[in-house]
Structure formats: C-alpha cells, structure tokens
C-alpha cells in the first residue's frame, strides 16, 4: 500500500491562529482583579480587620476584662479610652479588638465548614442525580422552609448557648443554601459534552468529579460562600445579642451591642460602635464577593 500523506492544505491549520497569550482561568480572574481597584480596596479592608483581630493582644491598649466603676460609660477620647468605655467601665477599643476574634470566627468558620459539607453534598447530588439527588435535595428543602435567623435561633436554643453551639447551628443554617448552589452548578456542568466524553473514556465517577466537575463549579460556590460570610457575621451577632451565642463577660460585637443597648440614652455614640463595626465588616465582605463574582464571570 502506498504511503498515505496528509495534504499540505491540511497540515497548516496552525496558520492564522491568533497570537494570544495562554492564560488559565484562574490567571484570568487574577488579571481582572488586579485592575478592579474597588475590590482591591475592600479586600485590603477585610485583611486589616482580620489582622487587627489576630493581633488583638498586641494592639489592645488595655485589658478587655478589667472593669472600673469610676469610668463607666465615658465618651470617646476620655482620658486613655480612645473609644470610650462600656457600662462596666471596660475599654471599648480593647473589647472591640478582642471581640473581633470571636465575631469573625463565628462569621467565617461556619461558612467554611458549610462550604465543605454542603458543597460536597451538592456536587454528589448534582452529579449522581436520580434518587440520591431526590433524597438530598428534599431534606435541604425542609431546612429552606424556615427563615435562616429563626432556624439558627431554634437550633441554638435546642442545643444551648455557647460559642461552639452557636457555630454549629450557623453551620447547619448555611449547609442547605450552599448545597443548592453546588447542586445547580453541578447538574448544569454534568450534561455538557466534555463530561460525556470523559465518561466515554471509561473514567470513574470520582475521577470525573475531581478533574472535570470541580474546576467548573468551584467558582460559583466560592462566590456564593464569600457572600455568606457577611450574613454569618450578622447572624452570629444576632445570636449573641439574644444571649444564645457568646456569654458574658466574653467580648463579642453582638453581645456588646446587647449590653450597651441599655445605655443608649446616656452615650449613644459609644453604643453604636459595635454596630458600626458589624456593618463595615459585612459591607467589606459583601463588596469583595461582588468583585469576585464579576471577575469570575469570564465567558471562556
């Protein structure tokens, strides 16, 4: 048989290819973020808040637990109390810095755990489909029926107060929405041709999920969970405010808001400080997740 050769016309498919730089999806996202100054700014704010909580022992000018009957409810800038004092005469700034540790932990940890658990459940439900999907998603729907704050209160109430129980209840609250987002994203990707092609090579389910699904659903899941952080901080504060999360005398933004509430007519500015901190933190997280969302919205 004669030599089979490819026609030269065919061998030059390379011609006319646009000379583009090769960038992966995540490099592309990074490239976009680099020019999104607003998101960068709020990202820096988030970092600042996180660092101030981490280094609270170094930054705090006073002992957050040390009360003083003489210095109760002093205004901002009174003597050494930069942000004034609370109803027991404790330094607000120090309590804010220490309080950030608990508040932020309660804001971030439940979302992290829920992303892992809910994301996994959602990906499994979305990829396997059928009865497994039915089972997982119907259970999730039951949780959906309650407003999240009510659910958190109910679970915390049943399990009793405390930081750990508070975080557990918040985790349970965030699993259903994250599971739903992961399920939706996965079931969309699952039916695409490249997943079919992977199945056609004889690849096992786990390998397909790891190699082909994960990279394509991680984006939407991360965006959603980052937007949940601000919700979680608010809910955690809410729980503490109701006395279900952190117990006194631990410093916590939500709890501080609760105890300072009584002094609102005496020194309203000082009372507002924990609230303002919660507001700023959640806005920062929210805007960062918005920025992330638009950076990840690259149509490839």
């Amino acid at each position: 048989m004669a030599n089979i050769t490819m026609s030269p016309a065919d061998a030059v498919a390379v011609q006319g290819a646009p000379a583009v730089r090769v960038r992966s999806y995540w490099q592309n996202v990074g490239y976009r973020l680099r020019y999104d100054y607003l998101t960068l700014f709020f990202g820096a704010m988030v970092m600042l808040i996180l660092l101030s909580a981490v280094f609270a022992p170094l930054l705090a000018p006073m002992d957050p637990y040390e009360s003083s009957l003489i210095n109760r409810l002093k205004p901002i800038g009174y003597k050494d109390f930069i942000l004034g004092t609370d109803e027991l005469g404790r330094d607000i700034l120090s309590r804010m810095l220490y309080g950030g540790r608990i508040s932020l932990t309660m804001g971030i940890m439940p979302v992290l755990v829920a992303t892992l658990v809910g994301g996994t459940l959602g990906i499994v439900a979305g990829f396997v489909g059928g009865r497994t999907n039915m089972l997982i998603m119907r259970v999730v729907d039951v949780f959906y029926a309650f407003p999240s704050i009510l659910l958190a209160v109910a679970i915390s109430g049943a399990m009793g107060g405390g930081v750990v129980n508070g975080m557990l209840s918040l985790t349970l609250v965030f699993i259903p929405p994250l599971c739903r987002v992961a399920e939706t994203a996965t079931s969309q990707v699952r039916n695409l041709d490249f997943v079919e092609a992977a199945r056609a090579t004889g690849a096992k389910t786990f390998s397909i999920i790891r190699v082909h699904i994960l990279g394509n659903v991680l984006g939407p899941i991360l965006v959603y969970s980052s937007s949940m952080v601000s919700v979680s901080i608010l809910l955690a504060s809410g729980l503490s405010f109701l006395g279900l999360g952190v117990t006194p005398p631990e410093p916590d933004w939500g709890l501080m808001l609760n105890t300072l509430r009584q002094a609102i007519y005496i020194n309203p500015v000082v009372c507002a400080i924990p609230g303002v901190a919660i507001l700023i933190t959640s806005i920062c997280f929210n805007l960062v997740s918005d920025g992330l969302r638009s950076a990840m919205d690259v149509r490839l």
């Binding site: 004889g202 082909h212 394509n216």
Partner: peptide, 23 residues
C-alpha cells in the same frame, strides 16, 4: 463542536491526555 465539547478550564493537551491517564 460546541462551547461545551472541551473542558474550558483545561489546556487542550490535558483534555486529550485524560483518557490515557484513566487507563
């Protein structure tokens, strides 16, 4: 050929190599 025939997050040589690795 459609927008979904290849994994958008993967260099094409990895897409080709995947089947080989599976086996």
């Amino acid at each position: 050929d459609s927008y979904s025939s290849l994994n958008p997050r993967m260099p094409v040589e990895d897409s080709i190599a995947y089947g080989k690795k599976v086996h």
